[in-house]
Design a binder for these strands. Structure first.
Lengths: 158, 158
DNA sequence: CAAGATTGATGTTTCAATCTTT
DNA sequence: AAAGATTGAAACATCAATCTTG
């Protein structure tokens, strides 16, 4: 039971800096996004993410499961969220006639409008927290690191 | 009202890669941490964060406000969380006699034990998701980027 | 029975209002 | 009045169980 090595017990300083920084930064940005979007456009980050994800999807619509994966929610989480968005008339549901088990979430005209209005607010927060604090090269490096983490590649810092 | 420039409307690809990757990675790791800690030690990530934060504090204790800042919760959020941890006997509360408005959260003996038990699980998830997927140099670069973001410095990619 | 989605209950976090101490 | 902390209510996400279609 007590076969703990020093490596099990303690993360290295490098690991702490990498993960701790990630957690702090992400949380701070999410809070700022939420506050800004809520104050200016009565919309949460998650709601914004749904709108923009649908906007970027072909035809402005996506199956619930697909949507859930892209906005990082569980199936039931996305059901509840879409229900709220439907209540606010920003999104509508419709059956997929090809496979009646599936439902599409579709961006309404009001949803398009709300997205257009809130997008500058969203982008400004990202720029204030990320873009303006890094050089173009650093920004690219950060993006490359996420790519490396996704694929599990081990390579230069390009 | 409609003075939106292209820059306001759309993030660049580099910005999307940097922020989107950050959000996805952080969410995935938090989910994995929560699942692993809950399954093996009946403790959530947030609870783990409180325990380790107290452990790293001088005397194993911290004022509620300080704790809230470090574990990224609002004051009331930390109050509720500490209440739960106190119910589970992992943490205890005590007044700061020097300033009776303040309360200390202190790691109990059981809290120390639970932390010791769960720490390897936590570290293993971090290593699986982060350390093993990057070179030492990439890991250091990532840490340096968070540091640059904190300070607002603009400099080389270190 | 499996896949897609939903439902209701549970647990957690936040906000606004409040209480106590300085 | 301000700082530290708490309270209760509301918002949100998750889980397990369920419903429907394939």
């Amino acid at each position: 039971v007590s076969s703990g090595s020093r490596q099990d017990e303690y993360l290295t300083d490098a690991e702490i800096r990498a993960w701790g920084g990630c957690l702090q930064f992400t949380t701070a940005v999410l809070r700022a996004l939420d506050a800004a979007l809520l104050a200016a456009h009565r919309i949460s980050v998650k709601e914004f993410e749904v709108l923009i994800t649908l906007f970027n999807a072909p035809g402005g619509q996506l199956r619930m499961t697909e949507l859930a994966e892209r906005v990082l929610l569980t199936p039931s989480g996305v059901t509840h969220l879409v229900t709220r968005l439907e209540r606010d008339r920003l999104v509508s549901r419709s059956v997929d006639e090809a496979d009646r088990r599936s439902f599409f979430a579709t961006l309404t005209r009001a949803g398009h409008r709300r997205l257009r209005e809130s997008r500058p607010t969203h982008n400004e927060v990202i720029r204030a927290h990320l873009t303006r604090r890094l050089t173009a090269s650093q920004l690219a490096t950060l993006g490359a690191l996420w790519e490396a983490l996704r694929t599990g590649d081990v390579c230069g810092t390009g």
